[in-house]
Design a protein around this nucleic acid. Structure first.
Lengths: 261, 261
DNA sequence: CGGGACATTGAATCGGCTCAAAAGTGGTGG
DNA sequence: CCACCACTTTTGAGCCGATTCAATGTCCCG
């Protein structure tokens, strides 16, 4: 939809002042040092993204994966479907995220990947990836770190669903998204707000709740003055309060600077 | 406690007929081919395990990890604690499993690892690991596959907690454990039963339920003739029925042979 | 202006929780 | 060998958070 608006909005609060607009570079730089050459290569890879409609499957369960998708704009996700049609979303792919560097080692995907919003996506074939890993140790290292963070995030989501109340779960998710989007320069305002182009249904399938209840919780969080919505733009009005409420500890994101190790 | 009894019990139904008793070798062989030399090296690494009491922390959240723990007997787990004391277990480490090959890349652990039962454990230092990765490509490949399976398992647990009922969750967990323990030769009977040396409290913290309710569900699954308990030995009486009930699809374990890819 | 997707609100229900107590179970020391 | 203790399992009763079902409201788009 209005992705071009968002590009402007992102200009407000990019964290490493004067960073690229390239979310992959920004993400990897938040985890490790990259050389100028590394960045050039990554920039070249991100050229000419294709635009994908919301609700498009990029990879289906059972497929033998033959490439990697890099998200440059929008939100995609990993998910599984039950026979009943119930869906569980297991990860969000925000700008700078990519899927399954080395899943090519496996014979078949055990889950699907699809877009939640309109997305700008680049497909990178295996040879390109391999070349990258062979010739750019700095990138390789950063990508490995990123993989570890993905795993840590997955674990935190398990804690979220398993041991937090509905209100806490949503608060936690909103905190996480703020930090992740900040790291790739996709926040607006004073770095307190961001576009969240997903439906309440999507959010429900993310945190193991029913959509109706997600609605009630969001309403309640707004009434308490913790967050505000205007359309699909979320603003965290009281980050400290929201983090405390959700018992959010950002350590699992392993962000280089600001918050803990 | 009676870990020596268990060693005997395991002798009943090792899957690749005439396999080693070494669970790490068995596990890796279920994922990839290993040379004789590879197996020798792994066998040597597994020598002289130390015995660890139930409820011992092997690694604490915040620690800077300096080695890898390999489980040879018993069950350990990854977990996080909330301020309230609530615990979420995020993974089981059964014989042949190990923790965090390359977590040394990170500055601090974002979760803890501890034993649930008495365990036989080997600590492998980073140099040994590095030597293994440098000199044994076959092992390296198998270890990478194992890491992917760990991730896939974590995703399936998220689906389990997020989108299955209490009964289905427990049924699913019991199915998964049967297959995992079979793959490392730790089942007894006709490969339908195994030792599950954990409390109902542990299980509750694993699947996001209260211990009392775990008890009721276990009782109910027994009444329905799907499983049987004798002490801490579980027997899956009707695997087909249990899998159907839990909607268990073993594809995410990526086991080489028997069940799908 | 009409249709479709999404959000919002209400009412009733239910799955799983909390609290509480009783009944094993195994280990320990006298 | 028995009594005792701590831990775990089992069972009951009542409650509450989240669900389902259903209706209404809102916005966007053709």
């Amino acid at each position: 939809m209005q992705d071009d608006d968002r590009t402007d909005a992102g200009g407000g609060a990019n964290p490493p002042a004067g960073a690229t607009n390239n979310p992959l570079i920004a993400k990897l730089e938040s985890l490790a040092k990259l050389s100028g050459d590394d960045k050039d290569v990554l920039q070249r890879i991100s050229a000419n993204p294709q635009v994908v409609e919301p609700g498009t499957a990029l990879i289906r369960e059972g497929d033998k994966p033959d490439g990697v998708y890099l998200i440059l704009d929008g939100i995609a996700c990993r998910y599984k479907l039950r026979a009943s049609g119930a869906r569980q979303i297991m990860a969000y792919l925000v700008p700078g995220d990519y899927c399954d560097l080395d899943v090519a080692l496996l014979k078949a995907m055990d889950h699907a990947i699809g877009t939640l919003s309109t997305c700008h996506v680049v497909r990178i074939d295996l040879d390109t990836i391999q070349g990258l890993l062979d010739r750019h140790p700095g990138i390789t290292h950063a990508l490995r770190l990123a993989t570890l963070v993905d795993e840590a995030t997955l674990r935190e989501w398990l804690v979220n669903i398993g041991r937090r109340s509905a209100d806490e779960r949503i608060a936690h998710l909103l905190c996480e998204l703020l930090l992740r989007l900040r790291a790739v320069g996709r926040t607006a305002g004073q770095g307190q707000s961001y576009a969240l182009p997903i439906t309440q249904d999507d959010m429900a399938d993310t945190i193991g709740l029913a959509a109706v209840h997600v609605n009630r919780v969001l309403t309640s969080l707004q009434r308490r003055g913790l967050i505000a919505f205007s359309g699909q733009q979320v603003t965290i009005l009281d980050l400290v309060g929201l983090e405390a409420f959700a018992e959010f500890k950002p350590n699992y994101l392993h962000l280089g600077g600001r918050d803990a190790a």
